[in-house]
Design a protein around this nucleic acid. Sequence first.
DNA 1: GTGGTCTAGACCACT
DNA 2: GTGGTCTAGACCACG
Lengths: 125, 125, 125, 125
Amino acid sequence: MTRGWEFDSSQPIYLQIASEISKRISSGVYKPGDRLPSVREFALEAGVNPNTMARALASLEQRGLIVTERATGKFVSTQRSVLMELKQELIADTISQCVQALEQIGLTQEEIVSAVRAYVERSAS
Amino acid sequence: MTRGWEFDSSQPIYLQIASEISKRISSGVYKPGDRLPSVREFALEAGVNPNTMARALASLEQRGLIVTERATGKFVSTQRSVLMELKQELIADTISQCVQALEQIGLTQEEIVSAVRAYVERSAS
Amino acid sequence: MTRGWEFDSSQPIYLQIASEISKRISSGVYKPGDRLPSVREFALEAGVNPNTMARALASLEQRGLIVTERATGKFVSTQRSVLMELKQELIADTISQCVQALEQIGLTQEEIVSAVRAYVERSAS
Amino acid sequence: MTRGWEFDSSQPIYLQIASEISKRISSGVYKPGDRLPSVREFALEAGVNPNTMARALASLEQRGLIVTERATGKFVSTQRSVLMELKQELIADTISQCVQALEQIGLTQEEIVSAVRAYVERSAS
DNA sequence: GTGGTCTAGACCACT
DNA sequence: GTGGTCTAGACCACG
């Protein structure tokens, strides 16, 4: 049994939590309109202090990804534009990280594109 | 000053060290024929026990990436084939991880390729 | 009760252990599919530290002679090819050592063959 | 620098020394009529007590392999018969040990002979 | 219980 | 100084 989610020390934990939940929303684990687990539940699952979890959720709420209905809980936003924005951002982050790593290995931009194309074509067969 | 390299608990430290040094070799931080820092220095830099560092380096030596000259130190292999193999493996791993993340977000393979192309073209301008 | 196996200082202990266990596998003391004694038991029997025994077993695993099933133990490989390879290697090593000794004593290659033939015929009667 | 010869605990050291010197005589390091190093020199070389070395040399003298000339030293015997006997014994011991090992690996006597023949023919090419 | 990992500290041979 | 080996003892995940 793991004690909680995995964190590293490169970033505040609450941001890592927000990132994790963002991914879940984007990938449909939590769908638009879904009620999220309570802060306490979430904190237990992640193995962090409820205050930390609350801070993470607040940052998501500020971005418009989740909305709070007083006394009933927090829900994933149903606004398409915000969710699309999130998705685009996650895509950009993922690709950015990948491209950066490949450039560090020594690939040019053209080589990166063709390497990715080769990869997906190979895995498609 | 950081206390050492960053490790997570998803993998043995010695493998993470091996991976880190692999990347440095592939990206030219340590070039073919270069003498590597001594095991003790390396261990100090990474913030681990010398035995752990030795284990990491042994795994690299077993893969043919580095060679040991007794009592003088460890050197990056000058064999092209091994280094090319390493590079291809690092590229494949990086792309695999990226594609997997993007597919989880919900992109199709064509979308992934075009998103990467768009990204590098945008960053080129 | 002996205090452990016999080792000499010509080679690292862990390699001598690996060699000893190899012989046992080849001669059928440990048969394909057999569960080996646990690392701790083995270490006790050999009179060495468990880490040293683990290192020896790791080298055998790397050669494909044994396989590990997590939390249940280590087992002799059932792959014929690997076991045949081992046997051939042990035979070659043994004969090489013998021939070398006999050549040093001053025997020619023909004399060596006939001396061996004479020996086995004599011991057969 | 090694501190002396290698011994194991399977046999008294003086017998291991006698065996080593026997091999040297048989292989011609010390030829018939040669004066051997003094007991003190020999003991120093082997890293043992002079008494132990004296005992080893006494056992060789008893077998007739070496003779003592009072106040001048010890010499390798010039008697052919004794030297031939020694050679035969060394050969028999070497082969016996080899055959025993091969039988333990699981070879039959015919297989042993043909394996040895194959080995010397291969090494001759 | 199993094997795996990591640390701490020691001694060795080599140059 | 280098790497290599060995011991001792600890903690972990797995089933």
